[in-house]
Every structure is written in C-alpha cells, then in structure tokens.
Design a protein around this nucleic acid. Structure first.
Lengths: 342, 342
DNA sequence: CTCCTTGCTCGAACCGGTTCGACACCTCGC
DNA sequence: GCGAGGTGTCGAACCGGTTCGAGCAAGGAG
C-alpha cells in the first residue's frame, strides 16, 4: 500500500512511480499505463505525512479563531463555511484552531510544528500579538479584520467605521435624533477587538456630525443579554427612537425587548446595524442592515493566502469592503416628540 | 531547527534528544537539562509531518459534514464548536472536510492519504455509504446520528423518533387536534437523512396514536422557505392550531408567517420542535422545544473516537440521547373550534 | 561510423522524526 | 574478583514519499 509496493508490482523503481504521478519528468506511455493500472487495482493514494515531509508543504491551512466558549456567532459560522469551501477549490484542507492569543498551545502547534502552510486569523484586535508574531516570522497569513497598523499587511476587512456611520446617516435621514448603539460584549471591547472599536468610532463621529444625542452600550452575545440591554436603553432614555447594533447574536433579544416595551418596529422604533443577510432575514420585521458578505470575505481571504503561500516574497495585499445598506423592514421615519425641529 | 541541530548543540545523538523528549527511555538528569536548555534557546518544536510519518499517527481527527452550499444551520455550528474544543482537550486537531458522499475528493483525501487518525461524521443518512465504507475498512470513526442498522456501530445520536413523539404528546395534551409537521428540505428527506425520517416517523405514529389530524411538509433551510411553508399550512387547512418543526433555520420564517396571518403565538397557535436551546431562546416568544444538547453530543463523539483510536479492537459503543422538552412560551392550550370533543 | 542529444529509468540521498539492538560503564551480591 | 543486572548513550534502520545525478538505449546530425 506504499509506493514501493506499487513499484514492485509494476516492475519499475519507486522514483519512476513518483515521476509518473507528479509528471515532473517524462515517463513512457507504456510504463505510465502499467503503473496506473496497478494503482487503480490497489486503490493506492500517497501518504500525506510522507509527502509533506519530503516537499515541505502540508496542503493544509489553519483557521484560527478564539475559543468563544461555544458561543460562536452566525457570522463566524458563515466564515468557517466559506473558508472551507474556498480552500477545497485550491486543494487545501482546513485545520481549525481555537486560539485567541499568541501563546495558546493550539496556536503553537500550528506554527511550531508546521502543521499548516498558512493561516487565516479571525476576530482581530487592534493590537494583535498573533498578527505581529506571524508578520515577524514571515509566516504566510491573512487576517479577517485589520489591526491598528494595517498598511503592509495581508487582510480582508469590513470598514466598520464607514458601515456604522452609514447606519447613523440612514437613521438621521429618517429624522431620528436619539439613537443608541449596541456593541459586542464589554470584554471584547476591552480586549481591543477591532470591529467593536472601529464601529463605535464610526458611530460616535457620524452621530456628532449629525448632532444626534446618543448612548452606547456593550451587550453579551446572546438573546437574554440583548433583551436586558434594550431595557437599559429605554430606562436610560425613554425618548430613544432607534438603535444601531453590531451584535448579531443579541438581535433576537433586542427585538423581544422592544415588543415587551410595546414599541412597534419600525413604527415606534427603528433598528439597523451590521449583520449577515441570512440572519437579518430571520427576524421579523426583517432587518435593514449593512449585509456582511461573509462568503465573499472567506473566499477572498483564501485566495490571498494561497497567493501568498505560492509566492512568499510578494508585498502585502488587502481588501477593504464597504457593503451597502440593504433596505428591509426595520427602519422608518421618526415620529412624535423626536421629530427633527429644524 | 531540527532534531539533529539540537543534538549537535547539546553534544549528544539524535536518538538521545528524542528519548529526552518522549521519556521512553531514561536519560540522565544532566543530559536532559542540557538538551532542554538548547531547545528553549532555539524555540525548537518537532515537525508534525515527520513525527506523523514515523509513528503512524497524525494527532488529527476529521470532521466530515456535507457541503451545504453555505447553508449551515445553527446546530451544525454548535457541533463544530464543541467538537473542536473537546478535541483540544485530548490534544487532537480538527480537520474539516465538506463531504456528503463516500466518493467526494475531500473524503478520499482524509482517508486514503491518512491525514487523520479518525473521523466524526455528521448528517447521517439511513443508508450511508460513508459509514459503511469506514466500517468495512475498520477505520476509527464515530457518527453523529445513526443509520438504519446501528447495532454494532460507534455513534452519538438523538432519538428523533421519541423527540417528535414527545412534541406530539405535548400538543395533544394541550388539546390540539390538527397539527402540521415541518421537516428539513425535500432533497434531504429523499436522500435519506436519518433525523428527517425518524422525526417524521415518530410524529406520524404518535399522531395516529392520539387520533390527531396531521399534514406533513418539507421546508427549505431558510426564513423565506419557512414563511412560504407556513402559508401553505394555513392554506391547506386553516383550522390547524399547532406545528412541530425539526427545521431550525426555518423557525424565523414560520413565526413571521404566523404573524402575517394574524395568528398569535401561543394564544392562537402553538409551535414546538427539536431545536438547540440558544436558537430556541432567540425567537419571541421563546420556543418550547426538545433542546438539542449539541455541546454534549460533540464532546461525547470525540470521547468515543479517542477511545476507539487508542484501542481499535473494542466493540461498538454509542449514546442515544432523549433530552426532555423545555417548556418556554410558544405553546398553549388549543382554543376555538379545534378544542377536543371527547 | 562516430558523436551528441533526447527520452526514459534507476539507485541513492534526503526530509525529520522514532525505535531497536548493541555496548560501555557502574554497582551490587556472592 | 567476577558475573549479573541496570542505566545511559549511540549508530543504524525505518516510516513513505521526492528529487538529484547518472546511465543506458535509440535516434539524428555531421
């Protein structure tokens, strides 16, 4: 069942079998046929470990994401799926590694033990030791998200600043004056997660520009936290008429909170944010939102990574995406006391 | 950066370094210290491919699930997450393989090329060529789900028959007489997916036992299909007062359809089914459902697989789980014309 | 007819680990 | 004082591929 066995049965040397399979040297048509016949008979496939050892490539890429304590969001799911499918197109397998930090054992295994040819990192922080470490080592990697200094890096990222700002402008255009912002959980913000920071930034600046009165909140990644968060919002300022959220997992809870408070969406209260379309379409009314193109991002990340693996000296490349807001049914003109005066 | 380099710098042979690391033969304290010091200095980690080649184990398990066209359900996500975490506990990495059939290229890679020591299969069909093939090869694998002939196999499965029946009994106890069943998509049923078949079976038998009038439907794995399905249900029999669903992804659409039709849940219409708790809690009102213990199932599957890898001769083991129905807010007593006469 | 190229094949070395058998040295018991 | 037994180390072989250099035969050019 190894290459020597094939060689023996085909009456040739091991190297000839190897060349017949790889095509790196010419092999006579007759020999090739004979070898192929033996291979088909025995169902032989070359051992991946041996091949990896010999030519220094594993044909595997690592997908690194934080161990979220079984709290993966729908967006992460979409990324995983699209990365796996895109990698299959390039004949790469995908190894999952639940590592939040440079020092995690699983991360060390991937790199130190050379289990993968390259890595895709998710859930990037503004200052991210994983990204820095990989850059120093010149290890092929692509980030989904970008650090505070993304200039020469390899990454695919949403422009959360612009997206949050677009949500604000959308609401301001509809006449909303008092708007809340629902961010990812407190600990993620404190850890420096880039989407949480840039989203907050974009929201705050755009709101200031439009002269809105705002409050910002952090919210756990689940429905119960969403509901609690919404109660806090209405308690802190009952005149609030709209919110922007980056927190997909809290969405169901936010909606429930609004229903409990007797606020009809979108008549009494508008909701928008940054959410993958298949989740935006799950809630009722369907969410007007900047649709996260997870499938495209995963595919682009893989394409960049493969490119980088195959020519390691190339300069950094990246894609900054700003998907438009899809108008669905969760936002409407402001009514009542908060109608714009000017 | 390889073991020879370490040996040279420590002034010993390669085998001594290997024994110092593995502990399989005794090494003097002094030698061990010297070796460790060199290793620490250089940040050496043994190459995974070389090690896998030498001792025939990759310390990787494969997680095989169908390429759902980027339509992964929340339940699949939960499985993936829990499998990855459980595997990390046993020092295994997880390789994802999007393969629905025995013949898929990615599946062949995993097995033929010996990339993994064992595999966990998801989305099992009643007659599943992957399961049969692996059993014939005596390749260590554990299924999440079970085929039509599960007797000697290794698997972790929900008892969908019992769960669907429990949902029926719950509704019948509340007085519902006309109940619909919302299954996974048509093509999955036709392909023989076990959960769809056994769930349908359990539903149908229990309904007959309780003398209920039922209709059964297949429904796409997304909100729009769920909404369309609900419209069909009410069109086919407007007197329907409850439904049971196995289709988590359609849930949001089913709720939306009910809202559109002016049926209040749970006052006018009861909804229940088999859904992971975190998704059941996302919708409003929260779904009364048999909670899929995805985390536990993933962990048990990994535990079984590791056990099987480590002692290959052991007889088949399995876990059949029947989680209870969690009472939340989506079911209530039947009202109006469909109140039970007897 | 010879020389050179080209096509095809082989043996050997290598990738970076693990493991087996052998051996040198030391200690202990008699 | 000598053999038995244990400890620590080494060299060599092996896992299953890839790749390099060389050799041989056939064919074409001079």
């Amino acid at each position: 069942m190894n290459i020597g066995e094939i060689a023996k049965r085909a009456g040739v040397s091991r190297s000839t079998v190897s060349y017949a399979l790889s095509g790196k040297r010419s092999v006579s048509e007759e020999t090739r046929r004979k070898i192929q016949q033996v291979i088909d008979e025995l169902g032989y496939r070359p051992n991946a470990s041996a091949r990896a050892l010999a030519n220094g490539r594993t044909s595997t890429i690592g997908l690194v994401f934080p161990p979220a304590g079984n709290h993966y969001t729908g967006m992460q799911l979409d990324f995983i799926g699209s990365v796996v499918e895109a990698a299959a197109v390039h004949d790469y397998d995908v190894l999952l590694s639940p590592s939040g930090a440079d020092s995690d054992r699983s991360f060390q295994r991937l790199l130190g033990e050379r289990r993968v040819d390259g890595a895709i990192l998710m859930e990037i922080r503004l200052e991210d030791d994983r990204v820095e470490h990989l850059a120093e080592l010149d290890f092929p990697s692509v980030a989904i998200g970008r650090t505070a200094h993304p200039e020469n890096g390899w990454w695919v990222s949403l422009d959360h600043t612009a997206l949050a700002a677009a949500c604000v402008h959308h609401l301001a255009d509809l006449g909303h004056r008092r708007v809340a912002f629902v961010n990812r959980p407190e600990q993620l913000l404190q850890a420096g997660y880039e989407s949480a920071h840039r989203g907050l930034d974009g929201f705050t600046k755009a709101a200031a520009e439009r002269g809105l009165t705002v409050r910002t909140y952090c919210c756990g990644d689940d429905a119960a936290s969403g509901q609690a968060c919404l109660e806090r919002i209405l308690h802190d300022d009952p005149a609030t008429t709209a919110l922007v959220t980056l927190n997909e997992a809290a969405l169901g809870g936010l909606y429930r909170g609004l229903a409990r408070a007797g606020r009809h969406v979108p008549r009494d209260f508008s909701v928008t944010g940054v959410v993958a379309s298949r989740w935006a379409e799950t809630v009722t009314p369907q969410l007007t939102a900047a649709d996260v193109p997870a499938e495209e991002m995963g595919r682009r990340a893989v394409d960049l990574l493969v490119e980088r693996i195959e020519q390691p000296a190339a300069p950094g490349r990246h894609h900054l995406l700003t998907p438009p807001i899809s108008l669905r049914a969760s936002t409407g003109p402001a009514t009542g006391t908060s109608r714009p005066g000017t």
